Amino acid sequence: MKHGGNVFEIEQKYGFDRRCLLDFSANINPLGVPKLYKKMMMDAFDDLINYPDINYFDLKNDIGEKYNLSVENIFVGNGGVQVIFDFIKAINPKKSLVVYPTFGEYERAIRATGGQVEEFFLKEEEDFQLNAEEIMERIHRDLDLVVLCNPNNPTGTLTNKSLLENLLKKCRENNVFLMIDEAFMDFVEGAEEYSLLSQVETYDNLLITRSFTKFYGIPGLRLGFGVCSHPEIKGQLREHGIPWQVNTFGSYFGRVLLEDGEYEKKTHLWLKEETPRFVEELKKLALFKVYPPSVNYILLKLLPSQLDVKGLKERLLVEKILVRDCSNFKGLSDRFIRIAIKGKQDNDRLLEVLKRI
Results as ranks from 00 to 15, higher is better:
Val256Pro: 01
Val256Tyr: 01
Leu257Arg: 02
Leu257Tyr: 03
Leu257Pro: 01
Leu258Gly: 00
Glu259Tyr: 02
Asp260Phe: 01
Gly261Ala: 00
Gly261Arg: 00
Glu262Trp: 03
Tyr263Leu: 01
Glu264Lys: 04
Lys265Met: 00
Thr267Tyr: 03
Thr267Leu: 04
Leu269Cys: 03
Trp270Leu: 06
Leu271Glu: 04
Leu271Asn: 04
Lys272Asn: 10
Glu273Thr: 09
Glu274Ser: 07
Pro276Tyr: 06
Pro276Gly: 10
Phe278Met: 07
Val279Lys: 04
Val279Arg: 07
Glu281Lys: 15
Glu281Asn: 15
Glu281His: 15
Lys283Tyr: 14
Lys284Arg: 15
Leu285Arg: 15
Leu285Met: 13
Leu287Asp: 15
Leu287Met: 15
Leu287Lys: 15
Phe288Pro: 14
Lys289Ser: 11
Lys289Asn: 14
Lys289Ile: 05
Val290Trp: 09
Val290Ala: 05
Val290Cys: 05
Tyr291His: 14
Pro292Gln: 13
Pro293Ser: 08
Ser294Gly: 05
Ser294Lys: 12
Asn296Leu: 02
Asn296Trp: 03
Asn296Met: 04
Ile298Pro: 05
Ile298Gln: 11
Leu299His: 10
Leu299Ala: 09
Leu300Met: 11
Leu302Arg: 13
Pro304Asn: 10
Pro304His: 12
Pro304Lys: 15
Ser305Leu: 06
Ser305Tyr: 06
Leu307Ser: 08
Leu307Ala: 05
Leu307Cys: 09
Leu307Asp: 08
Asp308Arg: 14
Val309Gln: 07
Lys310Ala: 09
Lys310Tyr: 04
Lys310Arg: 12
Gly311His: 09
Gly311Asn: 15
Glu314Trp: 08
Glu314Met: 14
